[in-house]
Design a protein around this nucleic acid. Sequence first.
RNA 1: GAUUUCGUAGCUCAGCUGGUAGAGCACAUCACUUUUAAUGAUGGGGUCUUGGGUUCGAAUCCCAACGGAAUCACCA
Length: 503
Amino acid sequence: MSLSEQEIIRREKLAHLQSMGIDPYPAPLFPVSHYSEDAKKQYSDNNNEAFDVVVAGRIMSINDKGKVFFIKIQDAKGIIQCYIKRDEICPEEDNKILFDEVVKKADLGDIIGVKGYMFTTKTGEISIHSKEVTLLSKSLKPLPVVKRDEEGNVFDEVTDPEFRYRQRYADLVINPHVRETFAKRTKLMNSIRTYLNDMGALEVDTPVLQSIPGGAAARPFITHHNALDIPLYLRIANELYLKRLVVGGFDFVYEFSRNFRNEGMDRTHNPEFTVLEFYVAYKDYIWMMETTEQLLEKVALATNNKTLLTVGDNEIEFKAPYKRISIYDAIKEHTGIDVSGMDETGLREVCKQLNIHVEASSGKGKLIDEIFGEKCEKHYIQPTFIIDYPVEMSPLTKKHRSKAGLVERFELMVNGKEIANAYTELNDPIDQRARFEEQSKLMERGDDEAMFIDYDFLRALEYGMPPTAGIGFGIDRLTMLMTNESSIQDVLFFPQMRPEKMD
RNA sequence: GAUUUCGUAGCUCAGCUGGUAGAGCACAUCACUUUUAAUGAUGGGGUCUUGGGUUCGAAUCCCAACGGAAUCACCA
C-alpha cells in the first residue's frame, strides 16, 4: 500500500501527538450534551440567551485566522461552527500545547469534542464559544472536500458512483442528502410497522436458509451445509413459511424479508433485496387492495408529509383509492387485442405480431405476462391495481370466485413498475398439489424459474389454512418512489459490487 | 452474459490534429485574536488504471485486461 503525501503527513502528525502525550484515540466517554441542531434551536428559541453546551463531531471546515480558529463540526443532526480563541482554551501563558497541537494541526475529518457556550458571531452565525477542545479521533485519510456557499451552491460535489457505493461511509459524511435518503428508508419501514402493529399484526422471523427455495419463481443462490451434508438455498421468498404460520393459528403475520436471487443487476435489481410480506386470515384480495391503498397513503405522509410526490418527471398521487383494471383489459387498452380467450398458440401469434421475443419454454401464463410487461406496464404511472390474472402464471393463488381461468390476484403498478403483488391465497391442498405439478412440467420443459414442489407445505395445507389474503411489497422500490431516487443502489447502504482489488 | 462509453494529483476537471502534464479546492510553511466557498505570500505532490503494440517520440492512435456507468437480456 503506497500512501499519498497527505496521508504521510497525517501519520506524522499522529506520531507527534503521541510523543507530546496526547492520545489521538482516547477511551473515556465524552459527555455530549447537545446535537448541533438542537443546540442552535434552543439558543434561538430562548432569544439568543447563552447556555453551556458540549458537542462532538467531525471537522468539516477549518478557517485559520492565526490566534483564532473557526471550525465547523458535523454530528448526526447537522453542522455547527465552533469559535476557538487561543487565549481562551489555553489561558496559561506558558502552555499553549493544546492549541498548537490539537487546533492548529487539526485536519478535515478529525473528530473532536468541544465544550463552551452558545453565542452569535459578528457575521450572525450561531456558534459555540469554545472553552475546551478535545481530540476524540484522528483522521488519517483525507475526505474528498465538498464546499458549499451561502446560497447552498455545491462545489466539487463527489458524484462518482464507484466511490460513493464502495466507500459509502465517506459518501455519507460528505453528501448530506444521502443521509436523508436512508433516514427516510427507516421512517418508511417504521411507518409500515406501526400501521400493521396497530392492526394487531405480529412481526415474525422465518428461515433464510431453505432446503426448497419456494414461494416465487427465480434462480436461487445455493450453498452447502457441512454437518447435514445437504444443499441449502438462500431464500427467494418467505411466502410459504408465513402461510405455515397462518396454518398454525397466527391470523396476521408479517416479515421484512431479505430475499436473494441469482440474477442480473441493474437500476432496479440487486442480488439481495427486501420484501415486506404479510398475510391476514379471513380476508380476500379486495380487502387487501383497500388495505394497500391506506398503507401507501400513510407511508407517503410519514416520509414526505404529503401524498402528491414528484418522482422523476412525474407527479404521483398516493392518496387512496387507486384505479383497478383487469390484466386482459389492460392489454386490450394498450394493444387493441383481446387475449382473454386465447390458447398458447394464439398468444404466440400475438407476441410475434407485436414483435415481442419469447422463449420456447414459456407457457400461457408467461406469454401473457410478457405482453403486459412489454406493452402495458410502463403506462401505469399513477398507482393502479392490475387484477385477475390467468391461473397459469399464479400457482399459489386461489381461483377466481366467478371468472373461469382466472385467479384472485393483483399487482400494484406505480411509475411504470410493479411494487406489490397480492393474492387471495390458495388454501385448497388438492388444487395446490395440482398447481405444483403443473410447475413441475414447466420445469421439465426447460423453464428454470418454475417452482419446486414443497411437500411439507402441502402437508401444512392439508391440516387446513383459513381463507387468507397475502401481499408482498418491494421495499427497495417503494423507497425509491418515496425518496425520488432512480437507482436501487441509492437506497441500499451497500449495494452489491464486484469485489475491489486492494494491493 | 452482449453492446456502447468512461478511467489524468486526495477531490472536481482541462489537456486541440501524437512532442514525456495544468487549474481550482485540499495539503505544507508564514502572516492575520469574530471568519464563512475567508484572504495574502511561498512551496510540495502525478511511472496520466494496468500490460502489450504502432512511432524517432503516446495521457493522446491500436489491441487486451481490470474497474465503473448506460442500454439490452434475465428478473422484483
